[in-house]
Design a protein around this nucleic acid. Structure first.
Length: 421
DNA sequence: TCTGGGGTCCTAGGACCC
DNA sequence: TCTGGGGTCCTAGGACCC
């Protein structure tokens, strides 16, 4: 009976996924790449992985996340191109504008994909399939980029069907046909099922979504807990729990901001390592200021030569967005946890427990903090103009780490938001 | 094969409080 | 002295996504 109380009209969700997005954008800047095997992400002899591969390159087994050197072996004739994140952000915004002009309920799920809630738009755009073709055409006309569109009664169905529609296609799963559509697909096609979950399921003899759907819900819950329960719903095409259940277009605030760097060659040189931490701290601080966020938790990430990785975090009594404070905390964590001599492959700095300006008590903000903020804003502008390397605050890039006279740039005791009140 | 960089979410244990 | 349990915060690690 409970089912009768649920809203019965099905939603119409579009999932728009750009085809080989990074490759397609690069082709706009260098048309000679068209039709070739192209690998975006770095050069063939570099440490790193493939960000995107053209369909030509995919024929040779190249795919994203594959090490570049492996890609070079599989597809020696491929053209290797460095990635240009600014370009992708710029074109992502153009994509967003096309979508926004088409429907007010749009949500970018990542740089190259979006969900649209098209429920109730039949009078404006016609039935789903017609609307999707209209949008598909408009996207091509206005951005020169191909996309694929999946249409379904849930985000999950829309997402899975856009993958099946690729490349450059449209696929509508008619309401009521969800289970039939999913049954023959590999469990791996379900968003959230990765390598590990797939192998757990394979051990149970579950290879296809249909196998999963036949299992008792209670058994999945027993074996995999909360996740198992959600999985049972997903096997039927439902947006079971978590982010998938949220309304399309409900905007979500960032939870963390981070930067990390992998060295071309591992290093155990303390001044080089701390210089990197300084640079990463500045990048994180800058992003915080741009977004007007203050962070209370700062985290160091340390990956050694053998790929073992640790993270160490510290939560401050008062939040910050200042490079100096971030660096000070992260450097302390580094000095406490790095064993001198051990070769480091990667360093990372992350800020979390983000608060808006409201979380700040500005009453006591004397001239001191304001001057620091002004100085940093100026530095940010200079970096915009002349590049990241153009401005370094005390402490510098290379070696000389004068102990900064520990100015607490905020000039404040822990007077903003203490732990428990 | 030799493994990027930016994120989100979940789990689990310990500290601490009531 | 032995023994509670719930709630929240914090930390560390891991799976997963693009």
């Amino acid at each position: 009976m409970a089912a009768a109380l649920q809203p019965v009209f099905p939603r119409t969700i579009f999932h728009v996924d750009m085809d080989a997005f990074f490759v397609s954008v690069e082709e706009l800047y260098d048309p000679s790449l068209k039709g070739k095997a192209v690998v975006v992400g770095g050069q063939r002899d570099e440490r790193g992985v493939v960000s995107a591969a053209s369909y030509e390159a995919r024929k040779f087994g190249v795919h994203s996340a594959l090490p570049l050197r492996t890609a070079a072996k599989l597809c020696p004739h491929a053209t290797f191109v460095d990635g240009h994140p600014e370009r992708y952000r710029e074109w992502s915004e153009k994509v967003f504008k096309v979508l926004q002009a088409f429907s007010p309920q749009v949500e970018m799920a990542s740089i190259d994909e979006a969900y649209l809630d098209m429920t109730g738009t039949a009078r404006l755009h016609g039935p789903p399939l017609l609307a999707a073709h209209k949008l598909h055409r408009r996207m091509k006309d206005e951005t020169c980029l191909n996309c694929s569109i999946g249409i379904g009664s849930s985000r999950l169905i829309a997402k899975v069907s856009s993958a099946q529609a690729k490349p450059n296609g449209v696929l509508w799963i008619v309401p009521g046909e969800e289970s039939k559509f999913l049954a023959p697909l590999d469990v791996r096609e379900i968003p959230g099922v990765g390598k590990v979950m797939e192998s757990h399921l394979h051990k149970l003899g579950i290879k296809k979504v249909g196998d999963l759907a036949r299992l008792e819900e209670s058994e999945l819950e027993e074996r995999f807990g909360k996740w198992g329960l959600a999985l049972a719903g997903k096997a039927r095409g439902e947006d079971a729990g978590g982010w998938f259940d949220s309304e399309v277009g409900a905007d979500t605030e960032a939870k963390s901001i981070s930067h990390e760097h992998t060295y071309n060659e591992d290093t155990a040189d303390p001044s080089q390592l701390e210089a990197t931490l300084m640079r990463l701290s500045e990048m994180v601080g800058r992003r915080l200021r741009e977004a007007n966020f203050y962070a209370r938790t700062l985290q160091l990430k340390l990956r050694y030569k053998d790929f073992t990785t640790i993270t160490r975090a510290h939560t401050l009594p008062a939040s910050t967005q200042l490079d100096g404070e971030i660096f000070e905390q992260v450097r302390a964590l580094f000095r406490k946890n790095w064993k001198p001599g051990r070769q480091v492959r990667l360093l990372g700095v992350q800020a979390s427990s983000l608060e808006g300006e409201a979380g700040q008590i500005n009453l006591l903000e004397g001239g001191r903090q304001q001057r620091w903020k002004d100085a940093l804003a100026t530095a940010d502008r200079l970096r915009d103009k002349f590049g990241e390397a153009s401005v370094k605050l005390a402490g510098g890039m290379n070696g000389t780490f004068r102990e900064r006279t520990h100015e607490n740039p905020a000039g404040l005791p822990g007077n903003r938001k203490t732990k428990r009140e």
